[in-house]
Design a protein around this nucleic acid. Sequence first.
RNA 1: GCCGAAGUGGCGGAAUUGGUAGACGCGCUAGAUUCAGGAUCUAGUGAAGGUUUACUUCGUGCGGGUUCGAGUCCCGCCUUCGGCACCA
Length: 835
Amino acid sequence: MTKTNDDYDAPAVERRWQEFWEEIGLFEANEDSPKPKFYLLEMFPYPSGDLHVGHMKNYFIGDVLNRYKMMRGYEVLHPIGWDSFGLPAENAAIQRGVSPTAWTEENIATSRETLKRAGVGYDWRREIAACRPDYYIWTQWLFLKLYERGLAYRASGPANFCPSCNTVLANEQVVEGACYRCDTPVERRHLKQWYFKITAYADRLLDDLELIEKNWPRHVITLQRNWIGRSEGLTVRFPVVGGGDRHFDVFTTRGDTLYGVTFMALAPEHPAIAELTEGLPTKSDIETFCREAVKKKEVDRAAAATEKAGVFTGRYARNPLSGDEIPIWVADYVLISYGEGAVMGVPAHDQRDFLFARKYDIPVVPVIRAVDGELADEREMTEAFEDYGVMESSGPYSGLTSEEGNARLAEDGPKGGWGRPAVNYHLHDWLISRQRYWGAPIPIVHCAACGEIAVPYEELPVLLPPEDEVDFTPAERSPLASCREFIETTCPKCGGPAERDADTMDTYVDSSWYFLRYCDARNADAPWKPARVNFWMPVDQYVGGDEHAVSHLLYARFFQKFLADVGLVRDVEPFPLFFNQGMVKARVPKADGSSSMEVMSKSKGNTVAAGPFIAEHGADVARVYITFAGPPGKDMEWTEEGVGGTARWLGRVWRLVDGNIEGVRASVDAASLSAAERDLYVATHRTLKRVTDDLERLHFNTCVAFLMEFVNRLYAFENRKSPAFGYALHHLIKMLAPFAPHMAEELWRRAGHGDTVFREKWEEYDAEATAAALVTVVIQVNGKVRGRVDVAAGASEEEVFAAASADANVARHLEGKAVAKKILVPDKIFNIICR
RNA sequence: GCCGAAGUGGCGGAAUUGGUAGACGCGCUAGAUUCAGGAUCUAGUGAAGGUUUACUUCGUGCGGGUUCGAGUCCCGCCUUCGGCACCA
């Protein structure tokens, strides 16, 4: 492997400066600073213990900004902590009999050490860990706040259960029907669980996306919009024929197709099925169908999506508008979890209903025609007509457009008592209880006499019981449930015997408010002091992965809105500016000798461990390579060759600057420079401008490229004793600082400075120098490049034309032709159109 | 199926608003230096043609279009990668 330089022992130099920075408290953020604040945050990491270089990208992007913003004069809050509850610690306890606390703290220590060796600058005084009582006391405190407002509740309902993790999951944690963590297909189970009422904020979570839309990646905004999935329509009531006042509600976005309803379909899980079929000879068949349908969904969801199956219940409902009697079916394509768990079947205008109706010989009745067409003949239909159009055969609504009809129906429904406008969401309430040990206990007590009672605030935290008293053997209930010392308590209300809730909270609860805790991390009396949160918040730059687009980023927004409502925070959005960094890929060899680039992960065996890499090559190599290899927002490829190239370049920088260190100077007399020196001076300021502009745009890869270009230019510059050269080196050190902080700091010190370069001001570029007096204008003839001329900046069309005509090649192309038109883009391009 | 992102040399990638396509790096080639090197320095490197110097033609997934000028804008396709997937 390439060494940067024989004189430069990166690991030793880096260590020295890391200790120095810690000594002088370089990264400590202070609320009483006169500087403008900048809150920079990377997503709450799980302390995995063995960080690989893929993990580091996030932190390196953050730290480039951190150091740049410091040099730009900001008081930067750049904190770190650990999202340290969660299954791996508990699994370690099960598999190896180790203590989850000890195991986690050990991993935290390793992760912390790796980040420190990587030179990432954090205010370690604010370090937090979700698994420590001084943090989770406030997670519980926030649970109680939600509970007080009716936003935390326990209810029975269908839940996603992961049989491998032995716990339920939130909808957001089910990815393509499988557990997000272990990829096991989830099962639907009817269970009593704790929820946060995020749906109460659905509209605000949706509407406020407009506030952040411009400063978030578009796809993340789209994902959130789709996930919330607001849809407007009608709830229509269909009475059961001969069923007294029994009825079914259905949700539809297509009220205009109501006269085309030819059947009704209930989800197999619909609770009213049993009662509806009571006493009918078909009852047992229907029960069998429902059982099979529910099972089928679990086993094979993909197949169920194409082939629809159903069974007729033997009962009928009445269309409240047409008065028609329509058969009630149970159909496997109807979802219990959306709308009312029942749909009106309009085969003529809904493709799913159409397929279902054709399969079971249910009539198809078209009631919408295309605006410029005719009503379809049901016998000739091969698919549903799903577009809006004009209503026909629809009683008093015939002749209205779909839009008009829907508006009228929304008014008439409540008047006629058969329907009402309704809004449905794809978003469901957030299921937050987990049947696991390693999480924050839910601070609720169940009392036989008083029912569900909140643990009083002054009794928080509800501590996890000591690990040696808990049986971690996987079961379908929380390990806490079998720990008598934990469960048995007294009712805070009546004082009688009572039981604690045995479940713990989803770890996403922990990460929904951690960014607030950093503002006041050591507060023992409250989760935070509002003044402190209001000083630092909102987060000025959030950096993280888009895998959390509809989980953490949605939950945290929900928490922030709730906290704003109860006056604990000021801002309604926590992260007005979110940057989504790409992943690090590395080669995975295949059996046939070829290979592919895949995201670095332990399971693929293509990781490069961060600690050992840094110990061998130094952190600066890793930092510069990761920032240079590609735009920060896109995936990048980690290769040995790339690492070598970066190491080589840092060696070039070192030899160049250190070899001429005595000439480094902060200023130069611009007036006394020779032409060549003047050119170097201009190049220095042009580089400074380009690097500065691209730092602001987060285009770090091009910043490094510009620095490389600059270094190449400096190598080509012969007079190394020139003040212009020393001046260029001074600027190079400063521009290098955000990217290779250790080397820059070492060079800064060797150049004779006492303090850290990170307390120096970022240099301002000389606008006069960057706007050069002479510019190169490209000459085109009929749109093709035929030459280039150097002219004075701002040269007129006549001047450029005169210069262009003097160019032999241009003249050749103009020869014998008449100039028809001249287009000049000042200082850039001159296009001569001729015939 | 729906939504989103992206297709540029051998490779990773540059190119604010339409204005020199291929910056920078890797790799490769040649030379210098060195006891030697996978170290260092210098030069070259999109393709084709060319009196190998001028220079010319082609070239940013494909086909059209707008424009003096298109990687960039518009229309229609193709491919790849993500996300959601019976949402009524």
